[in-house]
């Protein structure tokens, strides 16, 4: 009864998905080009901009792996092209799973995949995943320009406060993700603490030996070390 997957994996859909991903690359290339030009105009050293690009790339390798994990989990249910496309654009892995869940639930199906997951249920799940991202895209497209202008104008007089404000926003977002392993405890807390300790050691090395280059890789090193520690912990405790 799973023959809808024969259609969901058709090459023509692969091509349609690839077009969307190419579009994402094009947009990023375009913004990178504009930002680079703007940086040069603002007098930012090209070497620093290269460093920014390098940091953006290296710090994204490991955090992108859970997306691949979700991909592996949902391709047997909604096929490769739509899984690939959805996980590459708008939203995050948890959003996609939730939206697909809502789509299936309106058809009276509570699990993704399995017996009752008919072609129509599949189509409903896929449509809801795409329709749900309408809101964020339209809000940004319509209101962001005005919001940004107001924000820049309003704080123009006090740039020092604006910098503190932005830093505080980052801290607020990070706090949420820090609280979760702290309250969960167990393996999450162990991984969290190992990562923090490795970062601390990296920062000490940077300070003590003036080894600035390490800063670009400190996050990646901390994550890898923490994941290795997590595996070790798992072996030791089970």
């Amino acid at each position: 009864m799973k023959n809808y997957l024969d259609f969901a994996n058709k090459p023509v859909l692969m091509i349609a998905a690839a077009v969307v991903i190419i579009f994402v690359f094009l947009q990023a290339g375009l913004f990178l080009f504009v930002a680079w030009k703007r940086g040069k105009s603002a007098g930012i050293d090209s070497q620093r901009m290269r460093k920014a690009l390098g940091t953006g790339i290296t710090t994204s390798i490991i955090p992108a792996l859970p997306i691949v994990m979700t991909l592996i989990a949902i391709t047997p249910v909604i096929g490769t092209p739509i899984s690939w496309m959805r996980l590459s654009v708008i939203g995050s892995a948890p959003y996609e799973l939730m939206a697909a869940g809502i789509g299936a639930k309106t058809m009276g199906v509570t699990t993704l995949g399995g017996e009752g997951f008919t072609p129509t249920v599949f189509a409903n799940a896929a449509w809801i995943m795409c329709i749900g991202s309408f809101w964020s895209i339209m809000i940004v497209s319509i209101f962001y320009k005005g919001l940004k202008k107001r924000y820049t104008l309003g704080k123009n007089g006090d740039t020092k406060w604006r910098e503190s404000l932005t830093g505080a926003c980052f801290m607020g977002v990070f706090a949420i993700f820090m609280a979760s392993p702290i309250t969960t405890g167990g393996i999450s807390l162990v991984t969290f603490l190992i990562s923090a300790v490795i970062m601390l050691v990296c920062l000490l090395i940077i300070l003590k030996f003036k080894f600035e280059k390490l800063k670009e890789f400190a996050l990646t090193i901390s994550m890898l070390g923490a994941m290795a520690g997590c595996v070790l912990w798992n072996i030791l405790t089970t």
Binding site: I62, P63, L65, P66, F174, F177, M178, S180, P181, I187, S188, L189, T191, F192, L193, I194, S195, A196, I198, M199, A218, L219, S222, M223, A226, M227, C230
Partner: peptide, 10 residues
């Protein structure tokens, strides 16, 4: 545990 690993360091 990638999220705890990410946000421990950050």
């Amino acid at each position: 545990q990638i999220l705890p690993a990410l946000f421990g360091a950050i």
